[in-house]
């Protein structure tokens, strides 16, 4: 029983790290560009399928892991530049546009790759289990777990220490004042959009071996990311991290003990947070 719980805990944490990647991008983009990107799950799916194609074509998962986020990020940059910027300051229109974009991407993927469910094998280096005495556990989720924690620390460091990180935080707090100090908000916003969508694409490549690809997964992942940021608080990476952990664990153990009601548990969690602290657990009140 203890082993079962431990296994489930690790599974949940690995899933939580995927959610973190998504929520992190969503949160960064919202903070800087003030856009709730509801195409986020579609970017995840795009990353997953592109990863699949590239891994097969190049025969190398690691190369795909590097290239796909780059490509998805570039697409994100193009979307910001050509579709969203013209709607600057019109929140509702921007959100609706990202929804539309999400549907378009998801349906194009369905058109190209079909509606069949695809499971993706982990790369050979990471397939198979790891033996820890009597306990054996697949390597791949551990890799995802490690990657997520490493990214969390890295992004925190970038935001805390690098000029770009400080610019991102300044634009998030007060874009006008930042521009009066020679920070170009439009460029910061463009780059952040690229980084955010690249993170979603990365999530897709990393997540495909964990969660089988199927139509509708994009909506599922967008929804999870939204719930994480609502719970954790929008605009803060700590909020995305701890929110993702909470949602991941509740989801994992919910599936184990109350398989019918797992999804419902997460919504109950969200409702509880909203009732007690509408700005999210670690959130600041947004005017």
């Amino acid at each position: 029983m203890a082993l079962l719980l431990l296994t489930q805990l690790l599974n949940s944490l690995a899933f939580a790290m995927l959610l973190f990647l998504l929520a992190l991008g969503l949160s960064l983009i919202f903070g800087v560009a003030r856009v709730v990107n509801l195409a986020h799950g579609a970017f995840y799916m795009l990353g997953a399928y592109l990863g699949l194609v590239l891994t097969n074509a190049l025969g190398n998962f690691w190369l795909a892991l590097l290239l796909v986020p780059l490509g998805v990020g570039l697409l994100g940059v193009a979307v910001e530049r050509f579709l969203l910027r013209g709607l600057h300051g019109r929140e509702l229109e921007q959100v609706l546009l990202t929804i539309g974009l999400g549907f378009v991407i998801a349906d194009l993927l369905r058109g190209v790759f079909g509606a069949a469910i695809r499971s993706v094998p982990p790369p050979p280096e990471l397939s198979g289990p790891l033996f820890l005495g009597a306990f054996l556990y697949p390597k791949y989720p551990l890799f995802v777990l490690g990657l997520g924690v490493a990214l969390f620390l890295a992004v925190r460091l970038v935001l805390a220490r690098t000029p770009f990180g400080i610019q991102v935080r300044a634009v998030t707090a007060d874009p006008d004042m930042a521009s009066a100090l020679a920070v170009p908000p439009a460029r910061v916003s463009l780059l952040t959009f690229g980084v955010g969508t690249a993170l979603a694409g990365l999530g897709g490549v990393v997540g495909a071996p964990l969660i089988a690809l199927a139509p509708g997964l994009d909506a599922q992942m967008t929804l999870f990311a939204l719930i994480v940021v609502v719970i954790g608080g929008l605009g803060r990476i700590e909020g995305a991290f701890w929110g993702a952990l909470l949602v991941g664990v509740v989801d994992g153990f919910g599936r184990l003990f109350l398989p019918q009601a797992a999804m419902f548990l997460i919504f109950a969690l969200m409702a509880l947070v909203l009732a007690l602290k509408p700005e999210g657990l670690l959130g600041r009140r947004v005017a």
């Binding site: 546009l97 929804i99 539309g100 549907f103 349906d107 369905r110 058109g111």
Partner: peptide, 16 residues
């Protein structure tokens, strides 16, 4: 049959 493509595209065009 790509209903999402249609709705999504229409949404983008309407907004723009």
């Amino acid at each position: 049959e790509l209903w999402g493509l249609f709705v999504g595209g229409l949404l983008i065009l309407t907004v723009l």
